[in-house]
Design a protein around this nucleic acid. Structure first.
Lengths: 345, 345
DNA sequence: CTGAAAGCGCTTACAG
DNA sequence: CTGAAAGCGCTTACAG
């Protein structure tokens, strides 16, 4: 591909500015060691020359890699379907790019691969910190990250061990809002189409659901677990609606499954919201392009990502970090929820 | 966060194996300079010590960064909605990880930012090559990448200049398949809800559409441009269906807009496919979770991504590369297409 | 086929 | 506040 383009080095800047390389480095990194006047002169020379420090050289000399790793466990079945991650990534990016941090994205098909990726990132010093999603009950990644001394932030409910800080939104509160609303409409049999049972956030939601069902004295509160994919959401819906005392309302753990469930209900001849109310977790455009539009638990996913990035960068800077709770998802009532049939107001 | 974990260096491997550092480097990189026996011994020592060469040191010494850059231009309105990119990325990743290449993802809000990202990547030697999506008619990124001597691959139709190879699928063929099918069903007024007119792939599609309309002698072939978002798709649908001689079929440039258009048709009291046939470009689960299920142009997006990654890695390896055509999208007829109302068979 | 040496472009104590 | 020097961990000609 031809010789690489000649790039100015720190030497060029130092020579042009008439100072030492060290002075240039200090000036560029905002560290003490140069006078303000000199710093300004150096900065303007660097600007003029179009100088950007070589990432590799910088890293080798002990400076941070200026990159964050996100390893995503994606089973083939859910590929390309969850708007959540695209929005999350866009929030991460927004914050990272402010500080010129890159996002290293890696998708893995299984957990062992993910561990291998962390080890490699650690050994190669490819990233300065990692974000951890979809944490399991006893997640082997967490002790591994501690062993590797990796600054890390969990996206999701704070894990039991507690050594790694997390950014989370209180799903129990949100679930309460959704189920409370359905109960207030008069629903007594409310089903839950949940996500992957091994995930900590799934357990938070299903525990909150069971708890609420008890407190509200619901007649039935069946829960079906899925892999978050729309076919699985459709299957779970058929199962729940096929039971003798079928639920009159269903809460779905994501938007994709709620839309799939809506289609299943319609194919079973049930009208929504007449015969069945539907609530989707995570609002997205697809909740508004189906008929009826879906009542959803809306949250600022991009903001969630920004917050996670900010917290991780604080950890990377060596600051002590603690769990951060972002605002919980709130219910956006739309046309897919109504009082159950047979009940009059 | 404590001291970094002590990692074995090439010196440790050399000492343990009783050879020089150079020998270890040659052995690890599969270059001539060591006997096969020595190579094996070195490799097993490296394995035993858990040695992974430091990415920064390697890069600084002139070796590739082992990373590929993907800068995505995402206007806020389409954030998180296009399944296409998630699938593409997953294909890229699948191929890159085979060769231990990382994917550096960067989302930008405008074109100037994207140019700045390329320059930075070039100067910092952060990536060995870049992938270019959504190419414009006279795209300023292409000459910039040439100027920077960046190995690059365009994902989409080969640009006019021709210096940068592309991986593409022949959208004209696919459009012909879709419109030909609609015409065969008896439709004479077929509308096109297209994407962003500045994109080269949009122009390929709308040119093919206009050409076909002429050859098939269609009565009307209105085209509406959008930003690929579902609200914009809905607006375009309203506009096209509000015309006096409204189309009896619409072809959408993505799945999201087709679903939005379906909802608009239903809200206007038009039955699909009775009053309006709908075809979606890019098949995804959401095409199958709406009612009626959408006829779609199906293609192997993951495979598209894999192919793009392979081609770019070939360029990074210094090989000459040429355009690669992947298989065009093919029509998957479903319930959203039928002969137009009033026509009998 | 092997080993010693230079050098990649930075950062950071350290002495002035 | 500044400058000279060492060193980060590799790769790669170059001489043996």
């Amino acid at each position: 591909m031809g010789a690489p383009v000649k790039r100015p080095t720190i030497n060029d800047v130092a020579r042009t500015a008439g100072v030492s390389r060290g002075a240039v480095s200090y000036a560029l990194n905002g560290r003490p060691g140069v006078s303000e006047a000199t710093r300004q002169r150096i900065l303007s020379v660097a600007e003029e020359l179009g100088f950007h420090p070589d990432r590799a050289a910088r890293a080798l000399a002990g400076a941070p890699a200026k990159a964050i790793g996100l390893s995503l466990y994606r089973p083939a079945s859910t590929l390309g379907v969850e708007p959540f991650f695209m929005e999350l990534i866009s929030g991460l990016e927004a914050e990272l790019s402010l500080r010129s941090y890159a996002l290293l994205l890696h998708m893995v098909a299984d957990r062992e691969q993910e561990a291998a990726v962390y080890r490699r990132w650690g050994r190669e010093r490819a990233v300065d910190g990692v974000l951890v999603c979809d944490v399991l009950e006893h997640d082997p990644r967490l002790p591994l990250l501690e062993e590797l001394r990796f600054p890390a932030v969990v996206i999701g409910p704070p894990p039991a061990g507690g050594a790694i800080a997390s950014v989370w939104s209180d799903d129990a509160v949100s679930l309460q809002e959704a189920v409370g609303y359905l109960a207030a409409l008069g629903h007594r049999r409310i089903g839950h189409v949940a996500g992957i049972p091994e995930f900590a956030h799934t357990r938070v939601r299903s525990a909150a659901f069971a708890d609420l069902a008890r407190r509200l004295g619901l007649e039935a509160a069946p829960c079906a677990y899925t892999d978050y994919s729309s076919p699985d959401g459709a299957r779970a819906t058929r199962r729940l609606l096929g039971a003798p005392d079928r639920p009159t309302a269903l809460v779905y753990d994501n938007d994709i499954m709620a839309v799939a469930g809506l289609a299943v209900a319609q194919e079973m001849g049930l009208s929504v919201p007449g015969d069945l109310s539907v609530v989707a977790w995570d609002d997205s455009p697809i909740c508004r392009i189906v008929h009826p539009e879906l009542t959803a638990l809306t949250r600022d996913i991009t903001g969630y990502g920004r917050q996670a990035a900010r917290l991780l960068l604080a950890a990377v800077d060596g600051r002590e970090i603690a769990d951060v709770a972002v605002e919980a998802a709130h219910l956006t009532p739309r046309a897919s929820t109504a009082p159950p049939a047979g009940r009059l107001y």
